[in-house]
Design a protein around this nucleic acid. Structure first.
Lengths: 202, 202, 202, 202
DNA sequence: GATGAATGAGAGTTCATTCAT
DNA sequence: CATGAATGAACTCTCATTCAT
């Protein structure tokens, strides 16, 4: 009964995969530039250089496109954060967390506007289990690290850290900041300050 | 082409003002409960207990309603933050800033969902000068305080502080947190930590 | 979850009622002339001399229009058959039944094509309780009479009688027969013949 | 404008004929199960285990498939009725007619749903000469018998008899009757009764 | 011949907005 | 001023049909 959010056909052939990706790229661009209001299926199809019928061969409905965009976006964060966590393994807690946060920030900077628009879009979407799970996974990755350091209430801490970083990044991007490093350092200050009251004395 | 966002007529008469407010209350409730998707003009009119025709006597279009809601919301923050700043006058920088941030947080908690939905709505609206100015004013109030303490680049600092607080609050509310004080203290930790690297030794 | 088939608003004002009826008349005409394929909402609106938006103020969806048409059609049969049954009260069984059948036939002749098209349309519609109940009522009226005469298995008999009459009428109309009486008499012959093997000796 | 309803190529090769039949079987099944609404060309192709492109190699359009289904169905009736008529040759008029009617009923019972759906489908199709002729042939076969017995207006009688039988059968099937014989006997009663007023004393 | 990706006209439906009453 | 019926552009999605591979 719940609308399927899964893409429609597995892209076995190279051409198919290209079309599928072209749709996502087009949709992402529109979403970032014009917001959810501008994201009409016809508009996406035109921007992707395909017909509306083709679009619906790849995605069963508009939500599925947004869902795929979200999935892709979150997979990228997850991958980035995982890599960062591994690279910083065995460092102090705040160092590891900051590394993960940086990975997240980098993504926000690479697709300015898109991530924010996507999250706004998700809020307007009917609730979907798959998407909810994905949203949790990003946080869960931070939780895992925090747990290793015996941080109390790691869920809340992870949520706080990610939320403050994202909040700052969105505001900075909206204000026109283009440089990554200065923002990253300011975020790190906030994160470190926040964590100072959380880390057990070890 | 630029649609006027100003309300249509000055509410000189008491009845007019009441109707105007009823529209905003109805719209705000719907926005908080059902998101931008559920906010249709007919729906608002019905919820406000008036006809669709009357609604358009008070607001020239849907955007104007959202604009009024945003204006109202921001006026409340401004008032709250101003009061907080005065009450904490002459205290240490972080104390004053935290007091202002608390005022902001309190508003977010009082209308959970609405503020967030309102901001999402604003992002989807065509850019409007008036609203942009308002957004700046909230930040400007913090900037004014920071400047008194000779903080460097007060615009960025103000933006950062507000953004991290709002980010954390939204995440907490979405996660179902209902208690104000715990969140406020966590936010203060982040703000204080962030500010520590900013305050001149003076 | 099941699509509502009920009309949207009660037509209190005369104008409203007129529009509602105009929609049904237009839809009925199209259905009779062009079949379900030709029955598009835009087509109906145009034929009714209203805008598509207005159409949807009166009926929540296309099915509801078909449903209303069916309801109207069945109400007419029911009324006609009831009147016929009363007028023929106390007559012999076959006389009463034939009177009812005639009432049914008369309706089929008055709106040639429509009844048939409506039934075809109903078959393509998702099952709806309300409609199913209505369909039963026509038969139930015959059952009631048969029961009074102690006919065995009145449900089957009623179904048979109505079905043979309708089958003959549809075929006759499709073949271009325009005169009512000759057909009615042929149907009566079949009905009487059929009933002869059914009536208890009394 | 008049779309050709004839199949596209003569099935000279065995494989061709098999594919052609597979298409019809698939289409017939879908039509019986899901009605005209469910009968999409892509759906048929998938159910037949071929590609949509291949489907269009065998039938020039969707109507042609329905047309072929109707042709097949009617050929079967014709054959059945012819055999029945021969087997009952020289019997009394009503015996012969009833035998033919039984043949028709048997077909309806063998493919419950399909024949009815097929007839509904035909009514929604644009009028086609070929199909109209076929429809006449079934009737013509009864006419031929009636004529032998010097029945007056044999066309009308044939139409009536077939129509009442089909009407009763469709209603019975829709009501869930599964047994053939009881229905057949009821139909025979109606037919015999009807014919009683028709046969010349001769 | 077979395939299935691609096409696009057109269907159902919504909703901001207007205007006669 | 209030009402709410009416409007129609715009949106999502389907499906018969084509055509390059």
């Amino acid at each position: 009964m719940a609308t399927a959010l899964a893409p429609r056909k597995a892209p076995r052939q190279a051409r198919s995969r290209k079309t599928r990706d072209a749709i996502l790229v087009a949709a992402g661009g529109i979403l970032a530039r014009e917001g959810l209001r501008g994201l009409t299926t016809n508009h996406v199809a035109r921007a992707a250089g395909i017909s509306i019928g083709s679009l619906y061969q790849y995605y069963p409905n508009k939500q599925a496109i947004i869902g795929a965009l979200l999935t892709e976006s979150r997979a990228a964060v997850l991958a980035g954060m995982e890599a960062a966590a591994e690279a910083a393994a065995d460092a102090a807690l705040d160092v590891v967390v900051c590394a993960m946060v940086r990975a997240r920030l980098r993504q926000l900077f690479e697709q300015p506007g898109l991530t924010e628009a996507l999250e706004r879009a998700e809020a307007e979407l009917p609730a979907d289990q798959g998407l909810a799970r994905q949203r949790t996974q990003v946080q869960a990755q931070v939780v895992a690290v925090l747990a290793e350091y015996y941080v109390d209430d790691p869920e809340t801490v992870a949520r706080d850290v990610l939320a403050l970083a994202e909040g700052m990044a969105h505001a900075a991007l909206r204000a026109g900041e283009a440089a990554f490093e200065p923002l990253a350092q300011r975020v790190e200050r906030a994160v470190t300050g926040y964590l100072a009251g959380v880390v057990p004395e070890a």
